[in-house]
Amino acid sequence: MSKKQKTAIKQTTTVPPAAVKPTQNAPASGLAFGKTNFQFMLIGIGVILTGFIIMTLDKEEFGFGFLGITLGPIVVFCGFMIELYAILKKKA
């Protein structure tokens, strides 16, 4: 192989420097969620657990009192809504 052929092959296989630069839309890390997403997820888990604890505090038979039927499920539902928000929130 002559020098001319080697130079021609080398020129066609090089990548221009502009193609190597990362784009502006590239994520900074490989994680799907950011720090605030994880914080909201932990808050949501805490609210869900609090709702289940509230349901166990009901003194009525089979948990048919206000705490077991009304307040606890509302708190659990709010916790799941926080979880949904944490999942759908875009990473900052």
Rank of each mutant, 00 (worst) to 15 (best):
M1C: 13
M1V: 14
S2P: 09
K3H: 15
Q5P: 07
K6W: 15
K6D: 15
K6N: 15
K6M: 15
T7E: 15
T7Q: 15
I9G: 08
I9D: 10
I9M: 09
I9L: 09
K10S: 11
Q11L: 13
Q11D: 14
T12D: 14
T13W: 13
T14P: 05
T14W: 12
T14A: 15
V15P: 03
V15S: 04
V15L: 10
P16R: 14
A19M: 12
A19G: 08
A19H: 09
A19I: 06
V20I: 14
K21C: 10
P22H: 05
T23M: 09
Q24M: 10
A26W: 14
P27S: 12
A28R: 12
A28Q: 13
S29P: 03
S29E: 09
G30H: 11
L31F: 10
A32H: 14
A32D: 12
F33R: 02
G34D: 11
G34M: 09
G34V: 10
G34H: 07
T36K: 11
T36S: 11
T36L: 12
N37H: 11
N37A: 10
N37D: 11
M41P: 01
M41Q: 05
M41F: 11
M41D: 02
I43P: 02
I43T: 06
I43G: 04
G44A: 04
I45D: 03
V47D: 02
V47C: 03
V47S: 05
I48Y: 07
T50Q: 02
T50W: 02
T50I: 01
G51M: 03
I54R: 01
I54C: 04
I54L: 08
I54P: 00
M55T: 04
D58H: 00
K59E: 08
E60C: 08
E61C: 04
E61G: 05
F62M: 13
F62I: 13
G63T: 00
G63C: 00
G65I: 02
L67S: 00
G68M: 07
G68N: 06
I69R: 00
L71F: 05
L71S: 03
L71C: 03
L71D: 01
L71P: 01
L71H: 01
L71K: 01
G72P: 02
G72S: 11
G72F: 02
G72N: 06
P73I: 01
I74D: 06
I74R: 05
V75I: 11
V76D: 00
F77Q: 06
F77N: 06
C78L: 11
G79V: 04
F80Y: 09
F80Q: 06
M81L: 10
M81S: 05
I82Y: 09
I82D: 06
I82G: 04
E83P: 00
L84G: 09
L84F: 08
L84T: 08
L84P: 02
L84Q: 07
Y85E: 13
Y85T: 14
Y85P: 07
Y85M: 12
A86L: 03
I87L: 10
I87E: 08
I87V: 13
I87Q: 11
I87H: 08
L88E: 11
K89C: 05
K91A: 08
K91M: 07
K91V: 08
A92K: 08
A92H: 12
